[in-house]
Design a protein around this nucleic acid. Structure first.
Lengths: 264, 264
DNA sequence: CGATTAGTTTCATAATATGAAACAGTGTAT
DNA sequence: ATACACTGTTTCATATTATGAAACTAATCG
């Protein structure tokens, strides 16, 4: 661990949507370092475009970071392969479509085709969401080794936080839901993460037949998980499978894996 | 300038779409540093999620960087405000819509609503493009102080590189095009950057009435800058103005600025 | 099986980041 | 109007720490 590099990265992590601009003194105080040290670090970050300085001398994350995004492995290997398939899906269902990858106990949104109905401004790309209460997250959980799911949530009651009254906060409930999802091949999110948001999700596998992420259809109408469920679930599952294929996944092998999981 | 931080940032800049994975020795050789040093730096970046290690021990940019994106000033101040307006525009014209910001002599794509016709996989978000041969770039140039435009291109013949046979590689040609764009309020890109790609762009201004970026409609059909030009240009200009308003721009002041520019 | 490649760890020393203090602007309050 | 408090910036000696050589391990290849 190189201390100065760690400090520089901590500076980058200090910025948030709520506070996209920070002053030198704020930064130095928050991280408990001297103004001078923070200034040196910021100058270096500035030189490389990772930080930008505003007219009022305050600092903000630099645009260069957006450009870096094009070189991130999941974007090259997964997003860019999945994008055309997701566009097709979005066109056929006329709802928002999301692509996510698992990152530990969360899911990271890496691509979104947001429908115009969804007039909430901000794109989801870059957002994290829990695994246990989103269609995409549960799609990952359903096809993760059961031991790993238990490690995450069993005997940890505080790990299943209720975002809405619909959130599954009981481990058994969640397990049942995952079992059902496993047999159907898709997941349903009935306002478990956000009220008035309904989603249908399906898992994405890699060449080793391991779940690496999921995609979903998301909208503001109950119909999505009701009258339109059959059509939409067919769509996400098909799309997720196509994406998996492009990741090197071989479906035949998977049926064996499923049988093994069912046997346990 | 803190050397170790600079080295760490140089490591991050080493990755590209073509080479999203690099080995330790490759990194150390490219940057002329010892394996051990590179290893220390990578470990630090690893700890903070800026770098990820693959199964084969090679290194890649980490997913954390995608999350950082949500806190970047232009995304918070411009993209999130513009997104709903751009979605509306995309719906009405049924073509790809882009949002860009100026970054020196280039334009950076920060948001995209890519139409399903465009089945080229990769999203443009994070891409840079030149100012002189794109609809978005020329929209910026047209409303930049003329002195700045001259500084960029006048007496620098190698600065106007031809991407296609349609690229304007002559400064006078470019100036004429910008003058026309200025009076119309929108720009046209007739395959100047990419063959078979036609765009209509309009400038976005901030609270100081300075151009900060542009948005555009982009597609694969000549119609876009032909039979549909009137409708589409009306759309982008209107959208760009709405975005500008949300950025604090006051239209009345602008007419004065325009008169001043015309007088020069 | 030996050789060559890879990544990782250790450690002394040479390099450099650090923090105190002083400086220079800005805006505010007295 | 003047002084004060607040920014960010610069300087510089020294104590900290990053560095690179070398040794180590593990895997790959002829």
């Amino acid at each position: 661990m190189i201390a100065s590099v760690a400090k520089a990265l901590e500076i980058l992590n200090l910025f948030s949507t709520a506070e996209p601009c920070l002053t030198l003194t704020t930064i130095s105080k928050r991280l408990g370092m001297h103004k001078s040290t923070a200034h040196h670090l910021l100058n270096t970050l500035l030189q490389y475009g990772f930080i930008e300085q505003q007219a009022d001398d305050s600092y903000a994350l630099g645009k260069t970071i957006i450009a870096l995004t094009q070189n991130i492995l999941v974007n090259v290997e997964l997003r860019d392969r999945a994008a055309p398939l997701l566009r097709e899906l979005a066109d056929t269902c006329n709802e928002s479509v999301y692509l996510t990858v698992r990152d530990g106990d969360r899911v990271l949104y890496i691509y979104a085709i947001e429908s115009s109905q969804r007039l909430l401004a901000r794109t989801a790309v870059g957002d994290y969401a829990p695994l246990y209460c989103t269609a995409v997250g549960k799609a990952v959980l359903a096809f993760l080794p059961p031991a790993e799911v238990s490690r995450l949530y069993a005997d940890r009651p505080d790990s299943l936080v209720a975002f809405t009254p619909h959130t599954l906060t009981n481990f058994r409930q969640l397990q049942d839901d995952l079992a059902r999802s496993r047999s159907r091949g898709y997941t349903v999110d009935n306002q478990e993460h956000e009220l008035n948001t309904f989603c249908v999700g399906a898992p994405i596998f890699d060449a080793h037949n391991a779940v690496i992420g999921a995609c979903s259809i998301s909208g503001l109408d109950t119909e999505i998980i009701d009258s339109r469920l059959e059509v939409l679930s067919g769509g996400v599952v098909y799309t997720a499978q196509q994406i998996s294929r492009r990741m090197g996944y071989v479906p035949e092998r998977m049926s064996m894996v499923r049988q093994n999981m069912a046997g346990k």
